[in-house]
């Protein structure tokens, strides 16, 4: 359940860091990797496994493997314990990613919040990467939920 009694420290961190851009990276989209990814995921739709298909494109979650150069912004405070665990990924597909595209990803801290459950209080840090193609069109948004135990 959501905890309304947010720690003041966490609120301050959220106010300071949510929305701050901290990394910019480019990624080349190759047909070979797009096909290998889709086939390994058991895909059978030719849109994703046949480069000669007229609508050949990357699998919906293909950008989830693209990692920003930094996990956190410089001088981001240590909150919670340890490095954290991967709590999951949300992918929004805005437009097809094509073979040969060069995507530019901008990374921000999208949210910081806490939840309390049976395991105690956990801190969620959401890192967001927005991918744009050469035409500056937004093609994919990936939210990575990193979970840390509150200290």
């Amino acid at each position: 359940m959501d905890d309304d009694n947010t720690m003041p420290e966490l609120a301050a961190v959220r106010d300071q860091w949510v929305g701050v851009e901290f990394d910019w990276t480019t990624f080349e989209m190759s047909a070979e990797n797009m096909v290998a990814w889709a086939k390994a995921c058991g895909e059978t739709d030719p849109r994703f496994i046949d480069p000669s298909h007229h609508d050949f494109q990357a699998h919906p979650g293909f950008t989830t493997h693209c990692m920003s150069g930094r996990v956190f912004p410089k001088e981001f405070p240590q909150i919670g314990g340890g490095f954290g665990i991967d709590g999951g990924k949300r992918v929004e597909v805005h437009a097809p990613i094509r073979s040969g595209d060069t995507l530019t990803a901008t990374t921000t801290i999208a949210d910081i919040f806490e939840k309390t459950g049976r395991s105690g209080t956990m801190i969620f840090i959401v890192q967001r990467m927005e991918f744009r193609n050469e035409a500056k069109d937004l093609v994919s948004t990936v939210d990575w939920k990193m979970i840390k135990k509150a200290e």
């Binding site: 995921c41 895909e43 739709d45 979650g61 991967d86 990924k89 949300r90 992918v91 597909v93 939920k145």
Partner: peptide, 24 residues
């Protein structure tokens, strides 16, 4: 997450996945 996306494509051929959100 990719395995789930492939399952959706088989269930609804030609569909477009607008968003997929998975919790590990």
């Amino acid at each position: 997450q990719g395995l789930l996306a492939s399952m959706i494509h088989r269930w609804a051929p030609g569909c477009e996945i607008l968003e997929i959100d998975t919790v590990f």
